[in-house]
Design a protein around this nucleic acid. Structure first.
Lengths: 88, 88
DNA sequence: TTCTGTTACGGGAGGCGTAATCATC
DNA sequence: GATGATTACGCCTCCCGTAACAGAA
């Protein structure tokens, strides 16, 4: 099942529309980003992006996942802040 | 960063209050459950459970994570349904 | 030929289960 | 001794980066 990292990578690819650019921004290889996207597509049984020679473009089903990803990622980031805080 | 599986295991341990019972319910070994809980504690820098000889009991910080985990897991399960659905 | 995405491949890290260990009752 | 959690250890899968490949402008 998908890790939070995969969702964060997915989110960034949606923003940049470009696997190469995301790989640079997140300091990882092209292939790693490409494969993470492929894994998400397999996991959800849906094509998330259309591939073009200029980059990638979100599909309708990709947009559905994107809305969930935004919510989940922001919750998880919030949790990372809230959980370890000493309760005084 | 934590996977959804880890959060689902955490959630189940909270419900059972017992690592062994969760390992049986989820068909995995004690050690695997134990280590996943330990990993979450390291990741969040907080003790999530008090260990007793009868099982484990959620700490205050564990409760904070639990609320997030509930929300995140239900969102992810919802996404699994929603994303692959052909749009009519 | 340049830009972008995908595939092949090898190495290293991490996850799993078995089994041993520790602690408490 | 029974119960429940942790640790040790070996295996095996999976993830990553490098590099080669494919297609389009």
């Amino acid at each position: 099942m998908s890790s939070l990292e995969e969702l964060m990578v997915f989110r960034d690819v949606v923003l940049t529309g470009n696997i190469t650019r995301t790989s640079q921004r997140l300091h990882m290889s092209q292939s790693s980003v490409s494969i993470q996207i492929r894994n998400l597509e397999r996991e959800y049984g849906a094509q998330l992006f259309d591939r073009t020679n200029r980059g990638v473009r979100l599909t309708e089903r990709g947009e559905v996942l994107y809305r969930y990803a935004e919510e989940v990622v922001s919750l998880m980031l919030e949790a990372r802040e809230a959980v370890p805080v000493p309760l005084r």
